[in-house]
Amino acid sequence: MADQNPDQHPTGPKPGHNGARRTFLKQSTALTAFALTPGPVLKAAGSAWDEKVAAAIEQVPLRLDINGKKYKLSVEPRTTLLDLLREQLHLTGTKKGCDYGQCGACTVHVDGQRINSCLTLAVMQDGKKVTTIEGLAEGEKLHPIQEAFIKHDGFQCGYCTPGQIMSAVACIREGHANSEGEIREYMSGNICRCGAYPNIVAAIQEVKNGGQKV
């Protein structure tokens, strides 16, 4: 984990971060030690991994600026930006609702543009600036959209909310919040199954019409 940002606290095994082969072997040994593990399972853990498959696994270096913090990482190329955020960096504010770009729960900003983080590989964003819901407020001071979502109750269960909010901020910045109809169209990439849609529109309109800096 030497090349990791010191702010990142390693918890448990994280083969996603360096020396793939070494980590595998280490874990393999460790696993056989589990007393609770019954016989049939040991077969999987104890047997040597397919050399050919293992050889193909390479970690790729990756630098990202996430919410103003610089990360120097090493990831499997197949790791999506969403899974990197949630599973490796524990930035779980960004949600997985479908994993196929069909719901918008995973919306983040990359270089200021809203995208679905589930449909991009983390390595494709090398060198970019990522903003997630965790990076929207300024310390204790909520972003105006966050305030407006609370005031207008723009959510129920809250699961789509980070994506809605990231999308809403972008919607205003893009200039696509000029009417109720335009907001509804440009917010249609964010599904809210609880159905708080009209309240979301009200929240966006308030911020847009209030002229606050977004």
Partner: peptide, 9 residues
């Protein structure tokens, strides 16, 4: 087509 996010990608 698609959504604002997907069109950005």
């Amino acid at each position: 087509g698609a959504s604002a996010q997907l069109r950005n990608m």
